[in-house]
Amino acid sequence: MNGVQRLGRWIGDHLVLFGGLLVVAYMFTPIAVVMLMSFNDNSRSRNIYAFRGFTLDNWTNVCGPNGMCEAVARSVGIGLAATIAATILGTLAAFALVRHSFVGRSAMNTLIFLPMASPEIVMGSSLLALFVATGNSGRLGLVTIFIAHVMFCLSFVVVTVKARLAGLDRNLEQAAMDLYASEAVTFWKVTFPLVLPGIAAAALLSFSLSFDDFIITNLNAGQTVTFPMFVWGVAQRGVPMQVNVIGTIMFLISLLIVVGNMLATRRKPAAA
């Protein structure tokens, strides 16, 4: 093999990887900008389109912008509540779908798939239509947001937990029964611990979906303002740099969770 061929081969082997890295860069540029802008000294200018100078003010005075931290707290609260409800309901449903037979199972699978395949704007308008039709248009607020969030998180929970449960080796449960564990003990000592990572992943996904949702929430929130709604509001006027601080914090927390989880699961097989 001569040098030219070797070079050609090397490029061929690495071209795809380079392409992939470029796509990753594309995905990360905005996040890098968010992080950078969280240190932007914007005090003298309303123009957010440029980096004016380095400051820690945005971090030390996160709650400066009127109403932002309240909106964040509200979104966290809604996120937690919706996550807990959706995770419980979705996990039960996943067990039903994988482990039990019942009339209407395939219809149920379809019903669970559909919210993931519907545009948010349509789901949001439908839900609003329902609330208006039932005379609840005056009561739009935390409860209706919660209802909407549980609704769209539910499908993702079911799908995630179902996948984990379907991959679970039934022999393990039989082995537990063979080793003197009753059905209940088998569930709590074997099935549940093994499905738990799937449930945790589903909860994490739920929380981020809920925290991040704008389109459905905006239609069903009434006067309540969540963090995405706050951002939407200020986007028309002038974005306070603290918004980027919140974005950065969220990114770091999620990165920490994902990387931590990855390291925890990787340690075991790596030593084999």
């Binding site: 393990l172 039989q174 082995a175 063979d178």
Partner: peptide
Amino acid sequence: QKPYRRPVNTVFQNYALFPH
């Protein structure tokens, strides 16, 4: 009789060791 009430134990084909 339920499997967990029998004085019988099994070595499973692929061992079925509890991974957790």
